[in-house]
Design a protein around this nucleic acid. Structure first.
Length: 304
RNA sequence: GGGGAGAUACCAAAGUGGCCAACUGGGGUAGACUGUAAAUCUACUGUCGUACGACUUCGGAGGUUCGAAUCCUUCUCUCCCCA
């Protein structure tokens, strides 16, 4: 396959969806959503899924396609998107990938190493040990099993330590032996674009959007999926806080306030990811014509 | 009118003579990231400086003391109780 994948990233609420649709329409193409939460079928308000009109305006892939009960991860996303792109590039020269999940985007653009599957019980057991015995015991064990990871992994981050231990224990081989450190070659070109705006304006938009979500019935959505709250996919801004409200831990007003604050944090985290290593060309979301112009200039055969 | 409590950094809040530029949390800023990634983790957050450090802070003014956010006097403001 050949063609160009244009990636459009940026923080939540910056206006990726609208901007992406404008660009996609201009190029007469379709959109791949790179959003680790919009893939889930049961949620739409809190995940800010594109509206029915928007979905009609441009065909979107990977929006509300799987259940919260399924396991899903960056590697699965990589494979599915590559398959999807293979088909799309037979019809389109350019495909747009829009989303805020940096890791998912990187999995598609640069690849992610194949890891063996693990027994969920092992993960549970390790989590229990982390809670009961503490992180130090586990990092000590990692030092024995996989000294390379011990040196590389963030030893204060229990998720990282657990992952490395889990793979090492499951396979009897060090976790680090599965990691290649290399960037996979893709049979298509990639143009990376990120959106940002003045911080204050972004925060305003976030606050407003949270209010709109509440008006649109976020609380009802949360109530509807309460039975699924154990899934990590629901440890998500907007859902966590309202679960807390339903538990009577905070007032509704407090919960909404928390959602706003946590969304701001999330946006900052996303920006950190996209800023990494100057990989992205930054634009303002209200100037799609500039973006289109820039894409045009950088398309293969358009050398200048 | 009488009695009591309190004013600490962006916010909340600890500190009650030296270990205080001041605990902690929130907020903010920056960063990390190979399968939960909207997860998880880290650093900084009075001013100036890369840093050793220097300088100005704990409602205002004065005082005691070698030394005060901490003690005294007084002023301003806030809150609570009794009238």
């Amino acid at each position: 396959m050949n063609g160009t994948l244009v990636v459009l990233g940026g923080p939540t609420a910056v206006g990726k969806t609208a901007c992406g649709i404008e660009i996609a329409r201009h190029f007469g193409t379709e959109i791949i959503s790179a959003d680790s939460r919009q893939v889930y079928r049961e949620t739409s308000i809190g995940t800010a899924v594109p509206s029915p009109e928007e979905l009609k305006a441009v065909k979107h892939h990977f929006v509300q396609t799987i259940s919260l009960e399924n396991t899903y991860n960056a590697s699965m996303f990589e494979h599915q998107v590559l398959d999807c792109l293979q088909e799309l590039f037979t019809r389109k020269q350019l495909v747009l990938m829009v989303g805020g999940s940096g890791m998912y985007i990187d999995a598609v653009c640069e690849g992610i190493d194949e890891l063996p599957g693990t027994d969920p019980r092992l993960r549970k057991q390790l989590l229990k040990r982390f809670e009961e015995e503490g992180l130090e015991v586990l990092t000590g064990e990692l030092k024995e099993l996989d000294p390379v990871s011990y040196e590389k992994v963030d030893l204060k981050n229990h998720m990282r330590v657990l992952k490395a231990l889990e793979i090492s224990l499951q396979t009897g081989k060090p976790y680090s032996s599965f990691l290649s450190d290399s960037i996979k070659e893709r049979p298509f070109g990639i143009i990376r674009i990120a959106l940002d705006m003045e911080r204050e304006v972004l925060y305003d938009r976030i606050n407003q959007r949270v209010e709109q979500m509440m008006e649109a019935g976020l609380l009802e959505e949360v109530k509807r999926i309460q039975h699924l709250r154990g899934y990590t996919a629901l440890k998500t801004v907007g859902y966590r806080e309202l679960f807390k409200y339903l538990d009577g831990e905070v007032s509704l007003e407090e919960a909404v306030d928390l959602i706003k604050r946590h969304t701001r944090k999330f946006a900052r985290k996303q920006l950190t990811w996209f800023r990494k290593e100057d990989r992205y060309r930054w634009f303002s979301p209200d100037k799609p014509e500039e973006i289109i112009h820039w894409i045009d200039k950088h398309l293969p055969g358009q050398d200048s």
